[in-house]
Amino acid sequence: MTEVVKPIPSTWCPGCGDFGVMAALKNSLKELKVPTEETVIVGGIGCSGGIHNFLDGYGFHSLHGRLLPTAVGVKLANPKLTVVAVGGDGDGYAIGMGHFIHTLKKNVDITYIVMNNETYGLTKGQPSPTAKVGFHGNIESPFDSVLTALSIPSAGYIARGFSGAPREAAQYVTEALRYNRERRGFAFVEILSPCVTYNDTYQLWRQQVENVEKLPGYDRSQRAKAFASVLEVKERGKIPVGQIFRVADDKGVPALDKTLLPMIERSPTTADISLEHNLTKYQKLVSSFS
């Protein structure tokens, strides 16, 4: 066996919520038996964005906020890969907000995990887009990623977990990866992941999380009802978690990579690009200009 890069110990503070997220992702990849060399972890910038260094598999450290377009590029170039984009709430909902919405719209078979701690940990505690009013002088109302994701018609898999409940979080990630492998489309999983140094919310969130799936009559394939339930839970001062939405098997928007590359074996990276192989077709293209 060729010796390759080994995961390094994480740089996170002891007790960081990100550990729970990493454990969840690690277990999900293992459970689904994804080969290391077919795993691509695209990390953003921020504490959470270093995760690819701490896991086995190909890792790509992208620019701040740009992890989603990068991950989309990887997947479209080679749909056989299992591509997971992992970043923080500042990365995804502030500087990367445009890409977040458009990636939901594009619907490519990648899983996006956001570790939400409602703060910028790496730059020492500034309010992030999800910060509560009053946190570090924040006077802007927080943003809700799940409500936003629900409003994008092509979004087919939306879950929110809590790193304080790692078993459930791992289950959501596994489901997300499975959803990708079935070529159903983009899967979005937000995991509440407290920052023990600048915004230690473990105790508070433990009391506030409420699994919407346990609401009477909750049907996760009903988008409008999911939206209403999430709003209702929030209005009660709780944080809605759970597998909030999963489009019914016979419904949904086709995944972009599946539409563009119906045969997974034939893609930009597997194409035979030798001149000999393509010469006749190339000549035809050139002569179309005469």
Binding site: R66, T70, V72
Partner: peptide
């Protein structure tokens, strides 16, 4: 960035 992702792949 999409281009970078595809080129990397």
């Amino acid at each position: 960035n999409m281009a970078i992702g595809a080129a990397y792949a």
